[in-house]
Nucleic acid binder design. Structure first.
Lengths: 184, 184
DNA sequence: TTAAACATGTAAGCTGTTACATGATTTA
DNA sequence: TAAATCATGTAACAGCTTACATGTTTAA
């Protein structure tokens, strides 16, 4: 499916970037729903260059440090746009280890279950706070054609997802507390 | 990390199963947040057997059709329980291709964006309806120590997640409609 | 009698992570 | 001058998907 290919092409439409810069992008807002490390990015950039979807110029910092600044080509833009127009089938499975654990939680005593849930709750709350803080950079909805629009909607989605997970965790805790009260 | 190992061990605690039956389990409720196909399961069962965490008896249906019915061993139960007690770090990234597309959505005209969103909406709504129908099997919260408790809480979570995604999609559509009105 | 379900396995290939490997430049 | 950041690559391995491969039993 080569999603990384399209992720890179999409980022290069914003502006030409080095592999190193692309790797950084995958660690900010984007990181909530897509990630790639440099060991994936460099080979992919090479491949995209072979396919004629990107080109690069070499930049020199200081005396000898070379950086390849990649730009998307016309063909690259075309392929990216075609991909972007396609309907996406929703995935059957969103792998989630914690939910797998909860699926098996009848094997744990109530106290342990609540401990595990509280631990998750705390982590998600922390993440939520970070996301909310980031969202303060968007006092209003960005222009539809600005690339900040995409940032904005996925950030909103990330916040809503964290809130939803916390709500689910709270309900789980509620079920366990109610169940433990009946049969302690 | 070998999550599949623990997923299989957890399922075998419920009851002894064949590889074929395990594969089926990964296609029902569990499928929302974990999946494995038979080509992964059979080698893993072999490995677990080598490690002494499961054993099997051969069952014969009809004249010659053999099935290996796997049971978890004491060691297997111990390892599983130890795993289940561990705190889980929340993942930095939950890969989501559709959100990646939306991240790049400034490259699409508003009509196409709304088309893509409506398409997702419809798919998630369909999934939601299926989940809600399934949840009717749980008129009340199952007993804390019944293995239906795990089924129940993750099903609740799956429903909440679908509702949340639909809410996000609706908000996205709202942003686009509002933005397109200002600058058509 | 035929299609669906039962049943088990292997192989090739893609994706992704962690570690290995090296070195330059900038900033504190 | 030392640490952080910039910069690029490869290798080994784990995980997962799709296809290949084979055959039996049951229910319509």
């Amino acid at each position: 499916m080569r999603v990384l290919k399209y992720a890179i092409l999409g980022l290069l439409i914003k502006r030409p970037m080095t592999g190193y810069e692309l790797a950084k992008e995958f660690n900010f807002e984007l990181a909530e729903f897509w990630h790639a490390s440099h060991s994936q990015i460099y080979p992919e950039l090479k491949k995209l260059n072979d396919e004629g979807l990107v080109t690069y110029d070499i930049e020199i910092s200081g005396d000898i440090l070379e950086a390849k600044r990649y730009s998307i080509t016309k063909e690259g833009e075309l392929e990216f746009t075609q991909w972007l127009h396609k309907d996406e089938k929703i995935p059957k499975t969103q792998k989630d280890i914690f939910r797998l654990r909860m699926y098996f939680s009848n094997n744990l005593d109530p106290k342990t279950r609540i401990h595990l849930l509280e631990n998750q709750r705390q982590q998600h709350l922390k993440r939520l706070n970070t996301l909310v803080k980031t969202s303060e950079q968007y006092p209003e909805v960005p222009d539809l054609y600005s690339d900040r629009f995409g940032d904005f909607v996925v950030l909103k989605g990330a916040i809503m997802r964290q809130e939803n997970i916390i709500e689910w965790i709270d309900q789980c805790i509620g079920y366990i507390e109610a169940g433990a009260k009946n049969k302690p």
